[in-house]
Each structure stands twice: as structure tokens, then as C-alpha cells.
């Protein structure tokens, strides 16, 4: 069995030097923390992705998702440990790897505004040595599939965010890579553009043998719906790795309670209740409410939760017990929701 990618104790530490121009400013104090010591973006990551898999990496902002992708794309060296792509070492065998991979990230602004959509994609395909004619045929076909064909002769700077991201996706697929890295590919896109992109990715992996996709996301639904296996990553560490169904089964003994209540002054009393696991809370300022998702290990805790809320003078507007979703798995492991 060959692995598409494999990491062994992969660690990446960023040294952060204080920036001179920041120090000069009055706000230097405030920035000191940000510019402080080294950051461990990846902490002994052991992750194996099989050939043919659509693999999801799920984690909040700053979890280390992009860093992992950059290491695998030969753009960043490991600080320690090792990483292999298609069996080749990212520190030593970059040329073998580069021919087999491509990468697209969400919100990319690559390319040249002066060129048309089609010209931009064509240009990037040339860096992979794709014969011009083949490239152009593939581009036209992909543009049809993504519903971008009528924009093919339009300058890139006139494209909408969704159209632009479709163009970026085509740039990734046009070189027909063996392993495609997608870093939050639907970030900030509307429902329709996201759906087109997700469906194409799923089809691409399922209908062809030996094609692998590593997708990072911080949308639960995306990971749950699309991926064969999902790894949950936080602060550079892999917390769990399994199929979405198995991950959910892990916390099946527990149930999830979702509450909508008048804005809470403090969530601290809830944290103190016996019989609950982790929970997340999100204030909805527009409606003057707080949405709570609480992992309940012991059903008897529910009445304690309700009294803790009413004790603050807050009204309970709605309450639901739900089956665990991937989001609940996440909350139970990371101790906070993804969007927090």
C-alpha cells in the first residue's frame, strides 16, 4: 500500500522576531505579545493519508492547517520530523513531488489582472509543462463544468469572489495532479459557488482511481459531507482521526443540548455543573441571545443547567436535544466551537 502523504513526528516551529517598524510605534507594547516567543504550528504530527482518499483536516484558525499544507507542498521545511509525499521526502526530493501535486487556497489573489481568466489558468499550466493545446482543451472543459465558460475572455480583475475562486480551482485541476491540496477552498463563498466546488471535488476523487485530496476546512458540514476520513487539529496537534461516522460514535453515549437563551452575563456557572462535558457559547447580538451547545454526559445535569441560566435572570427561549454532529465531537475535544 502506497501512501499519498505521510508525516512522522512532523514539527514546525516559527521563530518570531519583533518587527522593527512595529517596535517604533507607540503600540509596541500591545504587539509585544503577538511578536513574542516561538510558535509551534505543528507539534509531532503523525498523519498518513491513503491514495484515493478525500481527507479532511478540520481545525480552528491558527490550528496549523495551512502550515501542514505548505510543508507537504515543498514550500516550508520541517523544523524536525519528516514528511513524505507520494513516497518522496519533502526536504530532499522536491522535484519528484512537484510534478505530482497542486494546491489551491481559499481567497487566493494569484494571477495577473491584465490577463483574461483563460490566459491566467493557461499560464499556470505552463509551469507544469502541459502542452498548450492539451491545456486549452482542459481549461475549456473545466470552465464549462464550473459554469465559468462565459467569463473565459474576461479580465480577472472583473471577476466576483466566487468566480475568482472557481478560476483558482480550475488552475489546480488543470495540471491533473495525483495529489491535490485544498486549503479552505470554499472560504467566504456563497452557497451556490461552494456547492459547485464541493461537488466537483467529490466527483474528481470518486470517479478516478489514485487521485487524492487533502482538504482543510473550518466548516464542519464540509468535512462531514465530503470527507472519507477527518482529522481534528488544534494548536498543531492531531486530536482525533477517523471517518466522520466513527468520530460521531465516539461521543454517542453523550448527548448534545442546544439552548437559545437571553444574552448571558457569564457562562462560568455552567462550566461548573457536574455531569457536563465541554460546551460552547456564542452571543447573537442582533437577537439579544446566547446560543449554547453543551455536551451532556449525564442527563440529570440538564435541570442544573436550566437553573444556572434562570438564576442569572435569563429566559430560556428554546431547548433541543440533538444527535451528535461533527461539531459536537469538535467541541468535546477542543473545548470550544469552530467559529469562536
Amino acid at each position: 500500500m502506497t501512501y499519498a502523504t505521510e508525516t512522522r513526528d512532523l514539527t514546525r516551529i516559527f521563530k518570531r522576531k519583533p518587527k522593527r517598524h512595529l517596535l517604533k510605534r507607540k503600540s509596541a507594547k500591545k504587539n509585544e505579545k503577538e511578536n513574542g516567543g516561538p510558535v509551534t504550528a505543528l507539534d509531532h504530527v503523525n498523519l498518513t493519508i491513503k491514495e484515493g482518499e478525500l481527507f479532511g483536516l478540520l481545525g480552528p484558525n491558527g490550528a496549523g492547517k495551512t502550515t501542514l499544507i505548505k510543508v507537504l507542498c515543498t514550500l516550508l521545511l520541517p523544523t524536525s520530523g519528516s514528511a513524505y509525499v507520494a513516497g518522496f521526502d519533502v526536504s530532499k526530493e522536491v522535484n519528484q513531488i512537484r510534478r505530482k501535486i497542486n494546491m489551491v487556497s481559499g481567497g487566493e489573489t494569484s494571477g495577473y489582472g491584465l490577463l483574461t481568466t483563460r490566459e491566467n489558468i493557461w499560464m499556470f499550466s505552463q509551469f507544469y509543462g502541459i502542452p498548450s493545446k492539451v491545456a486549452k482543451e482542459r481549461i475549456d472543459e473545466l470552465m464549462h463544468t464550473f459554469g465559468l465558460y462565459d467569463k473565459k475572455n474576461v479580465k480577472v480583475r472583473t471577476l466576483s469572489t466566487g468566480e475568482r475562486q472557481k478560476m483558482n480551482m480550475i488552475r489546480g485541476f488543470v495540471t491533473d495532479p495525483e495529489i491535490l491540496f485544498l486549503d479552505e477552498p470554499t472560504l467566504g463563498l456563497d452557497v451556490n459557488a461552494s456547492r459547485t466546488i464541493r461537488e466537483y471535488i467529490m466527483n474528481w476523487v470518486r470517479k478516478r482511481e489514485h487521485k487524492t485530496v487533502l482538504l482543510t476546512t473550518h466548516y464542519m458540514m464540509e468535512a462531514e459531507m465530503m470527507c472519507d476520513r477527518v482529522a481534528i487539529i488544534d494548536r498543531g496537534r492531531i486530536l482525533a482521526l477517523d471517518t466522520p461516522a466513527n468520530l460521531k460514535r465516539m461521543i454517542r453515549k453523550e448527548s448534545t443540548v442546544q439552548l437559545e437563551v437571553d444574552t448571558l452575563k457569564s457562562t462560568a456557572p455552567i462550566g461548573g455543573i457536574k455531569g457536563i462535558g465541554n460546551f460552547s457559547s456564542k452571543d447573537d447580538i442582533a437577537h439579544g441571545t446566547t446560543n449554547l451547545t453543551i455536551i451532556v454526559e449525564d442527563e440529570s445535569a440538564i435541570s442544573d443547567i436550566m437553573s444556572a441560566i434562570t438564576a442569572q435572570g435569563s429566559r430560556i427561549r428554546s431547548m433541543r436535544k440533538t444527535d451528535p454532529t461533527l461539531e459536537d465531537v469538535f467541541i468535546s475535544m477542543v473545548g470550544k466551537g469552530l467559529e469562536e
Partner: peptide, 29 residues
């Protein structure tokens, strides 16, 4: 598809990278 050899790949890449300049000049007068 067979992989392009070193020379072919880089000739194409070189031409591709020069393209925005070559064509760009004719677009902004």
C-alpha cells in the same frame, strides 16, 4: 499522459511566464 521532459517543461514555463508582459504591453497603452 507522459510527463514532459526537463527541457520541454522549462521552455513552456519560460514562455508562459513571459506571456503577461508580452501581451500586457498591448493592453494598457
Amino acid at each position: 499522459m507522459t510527463e514532459p521532459g526537463f527541457i520541454r517543461l522549462n521552455v513552456r514555463a519560460l514562455f508562459g511566464r513571459s506571456y503577461p508582459r508580452v501581451i500586457g504591453g498591448t493592453r494598457e497603452l
